[in-house]
């Protein structure tokens, strides 16, 4: 019971995503942050208002972190089909100091 709970808690905290999701997250963070930076400068310069630059930049960064950091389901759409665990090992006879371990 406690083990299962800890296991699920670790899954949530680690927030692992699959390889396709990692590629997508990388692309998203780069594109969104670069766009926010570019927009913040252009809008601020056009309106001659540096506070607008600051806030567009900060809000853009916050949105990017929100979009990229949590393990959203869309980052886990291509799970890997791992091979099934092999049973061969259990057939081996392993002896340590004359005692049979398995």
């Amino acid at each position: 019971m406690a083990d299962a709970f800890l296991e699920s808690a670790r899954d949530v905290l680690e927030g692992q995503i699959d390889f396709e999701g990692q590629r997508l997250a990388e692309l998203l963070s780069t594109a969104m942050l670069a766009t926010a930076g570019f927009l913040s400068f252009v809008v601020g310069y056009m309106t001659q208002n540096i506070q607008l630059t600051l806030w567009i930049g900060l809000i853009g960064a916050a949105l990017t972190l929100l979009a990229v950091v949590p393990p959203w389901p869309s980052f886990n759409k291509n799970p890997i089909d791992w091979l099934p665990p092999q049973q061969g090992v259990s057939q081996l006879n392993i002896e340590v100091d004359g005692k049979k371990v398995r």
Partner: peptide
């Protein structure tokens, strides 16, 4: 980018680069 912590660090690191350039 495989875990939450790594994604947070990568995204924040690039944010500092963008902030410096702006």
């Amino acid at each position: 980018m495989h875990s939450t912590l790594v994604r947070a660090q990568t995204a924040f690191g690039f944010f500092t680069t963008v902030a410096f350039c702006v």
